[in-house]
Structure formats: structure tokens, C-alpha cells
Simulated scan of single mutants.
Amino acid sequence: MLDIDFSARLRAIRSTYADIAAVTDLAKLDREIAEFEEQAVAPGLWDDPAAAQKVTSGLSHRQARVKKLRGVEQRIDDLEVLAELAQEMEDADSEREVMAELELLEKAMQDLEVQTMLGGEYDERAAVVTIRSGAGGDDATDFAEMLLRMYLRWAEHHSYPAKVLDTSYAEGAGIKSATFEIDVPFAFGKLSVEAGTHRLARISPFGSADKRQTSFAGVEVIPLLEEATEVDIPELDIRVDVYRSSGPGGQSVNTTDSAVRITHIPTGIVISMQNEKSQIQNRAAAMRLLQTRLLLLQKEQEAAKKKELAGSVTASWGDQIRSYFLYGQQLVKDLRTGHESTQPDSVFDGEIDAFIAAGIRWRSLMKNQ
């Protein structure tokens, strides 16, 4: 029979949900959805593709947030009904089902609570993630590919659409770099805590001496900004190179020069794009990403200037954020939060929600100190 503990836990879930709904302001989201829906059916919307993209993206992001919140609310109501039926029937299997759903709902509430901490300027945006191999030779390029798979598996677990935009394969194992996009609300807010240097320590599969090898990979996360198209980039400030897309081992994957590399001469920023079907599409995608990077760079410079004028120094994240140990002790440990897992295989298979949640809580704590 369901006990008092179940009732207390269910009340706690309802109370937490009410707080989250109030902070999220569902009524405001409903009004914004109605406004976007009206704009989405307006004649001539796609005469301005940039504006149309902003409307459709804004609409889909808000609809996804409302659907998630109201879906949780419905699950709470359903659980209450299921619990009443299980008690009336005095059915052990039904009671086990009720307790299993209660635990899932508690986890869902924790995830929603973490999301309420994502109040940064760009946290609601989609994310563009770039992974680059660092020191460590073949182990580093292999590690970079392992991280790429980890994040793509994380997206797959959550049914998030992930699109690989560019991949530079290493001559030996793995990849030199890869860039991918995850276009769901709050993707940037969540994944931004993954930015930094990741370190892998293991017995190298590429050496013959069975010695421990340490290798590094860098993760960069930036938000996908519609307004980045407002950044003006003079043609004289960029160099555009075209080449054939390549796959593992340097093999060509098409017969035309469709891949595009854009270099922003004043800053040295380089953007490569090869996964669209045509050179025109790759150039448009690369320019959008370049505009985003330049906008963020401008904001970072402005923020740095303000800090300099204020004469204050805030706590920094540091560069190295996480270590993965695949020898002796099997361990993955975050160096900022202290969160760890003794199941590195699961972590590399995309089970990183606990690390992300711990990172968001840690960041929120640092901001409030």
C-alpha cells in the first residue's frame, strides 16, 4: 500500500512545479506564441528570409517550452489518478508502477529546476559546439572524436536535433576538429558549462609500451543568434577558399568544390563548412557562424572594458574542466563542481546530464557570491 512518504513526495512535486510555472510565466509564453503564430501566417513572410527564420524559430522554441511544462503537469495529474486506482485495487504491480513514475517525475522536476537557473542573455538559444584536439597526438584526435560522439549521443537521448556542420579528420585516428549545431531551446545554456579543456588519461591503444598517455581536447560553445545577421562584414575583411569535402583518411566525399573556408582577416577567425549540399549553402552557413562569433567577440571586449574600468576581478572557470580516467580507477571527475562518475563508458555514451546540472548549479552559485 502506498504510504505517507508517497503523498509527501507528490505534494513536494506539485509545489515545485507551481514555483517553476510562476517563474517561467506560462501566460506570457502563451501570449508570445499567439503573436508569433499571427506573424507566421502573414502574407509575404518569406519575402524576408532572415525575419521569417526569426519568427519560426521563436515560435517553435516557445511551443517546445510550453509543451514540456504542460506535459509534466499532465503527468502529475495522471500519477495522482493512477495512485488512487492502485490503492483501490490493492494491486502490488500498479503500486510499483506508481513509485517508478514518481521517481521519474522527481528527476524531471530537478531538470526543470536547473533550467530556471538559465537566465543568461543567450541561454535560451540553440548551441553551436566546436571540438578541437589538443596535445597528445593520435590519442588526442581519438579523444576529440570520443567527445563528439558523447555530445551527439546526449542529443539523441533527448531527441534533440543535432546537425554536424564541419569535420576535419586526422591523418591517423579520430578528428582534428568538428562543429555541430543543436537547435532546441536552452541548448546553449546547458552546453555552455561544457566549454573548456577536457583531459583524458589512459593506456594508449596507439603505443606499444603500454604506458599511460594523457591527451587533451578543447570544447567551445557559442549561441546561435538570429540577430547576428546585423553584423556588417566588409568583403575586404574576409578571404574565402573553396575545396572538396573530405572524409576519414583524407578521401574526397564529393566531386565538386562545395566546401567553404572563410577567414576573417582582422581577427584571424576561421570558419569552415562542408556538410551542406552546395557551395552557396555552405558559404551562407559559414557567414552566419562568423557573424555570431564577431558579435560575441564584440560583447566580450565590451564586458572586459567594463571590468577594467570597475577595477574588479570575478571568479573564473579556469581552462581545464574535466578529467576522464580510463586506467586503474575508472573515473570521470569535474574539477569545478567535484561531481564524478565511476561509469566512464556511460558518460562517453552521452549520460552527462548530471555533469551539466552540477555545472549549472555551480555557475549560478558563483554568480551569486
Rank of each mutant, 00 (worst) to 15 (best):
L165G: 04
T314P: 05
E97R: 10
G250R: 07
S312R: 13
G207E: 14
G328E: 11
Y243N: 06
M1S: 08
E351A: 15
I280C: 00
E95M: 15
S7M: 07
F186W: 11
R293I: 00
T263H: 09
Q274N: 15
A170S: 14
P248C: 09
L295S: 08
R239F: 01
A52M: 04
V242H: 15
Q330I: 04
F206Y: 10
S323H: 12
M366G: 01
V184C: 04
P223H: 08
H339K: 11
A135T: 13
E340T: 08
F36K: 10
V193K: 02
G359W: 06
F216C: 05
A27I: 05
G311I: 07
G218A: 14
M366T: 13
Y327E: 14
R288S: 13
E308D: 07
A42D: 02
R11M: 12
D232R: 04
I182Y: 03
G137V: 03
D48R: 06
E80G: 14
V221D: 03
A315E: 15
S272A: 14
A18I: 05
S252A: 13
R75V: 00
G359E: 07
A140F: 01
G207P: 00
M117Q: 13
L200H: 02
S246D: 07
T337L: 08
I352H: 06
L112K: 09
I321T: 10
Q87D: 15
E113S: 13
A8Q: 15
E235Q: 10
Y324D: 03
D47P: 00
S204E: 02
L102E: 09
I360S: 06
S204P: 00
K299T: 02
E32R: 14
E145R: 02
L2H: 09
A51M: 11
R75S: 13
Q298R: 14
Q63F: 00
D138G: 01
L335P: 05
F143L: 01
L331M: 15
T263L: 13
R261L: 03
L289P: 00
T342R: 13
G338P: 03
D25W: 10
A50N: 06
L105E: 03
R322L: 10
L309M: 11
D349L: 06
T342Y: 12
Y122D: 11
L10D: 09
G44T: 05
Q301L: 11
E145Q: 13
E302P: 02
R283I: 01
G119Q: 11
G58D: 09
S245D: 13
E300L: 02
L294A: 09
T179Q: 05
G71H: 04
R361L: 09
G250W: 08
Q369V: 07
E124K: 09
A108F: 00
V98W: 05
L365R: 15
W46N: 05
I321D: 03
I131P: 01
T116N: 08
A259Q: 07
R153K: 15
L10A: 10
A173V: 04
L118H: 08
V23T: 14
D345L: 07
T337I: 08
A100W: 05
A51G: 14
I360Q: 05
I76Q: 04
R153Y: 11
S7Y: 11
Q87Y: 02
L59V: 11
V55G: 02
W362P: 02
W46I: 02
L29H: 12
E300S: 10
R199M: 09
S133R: 02
W362A: 06
I360K: 09
L326N: 07
L225N: 03
L297G: 03
F355K: 05
D353W: 06
Q251L: 11
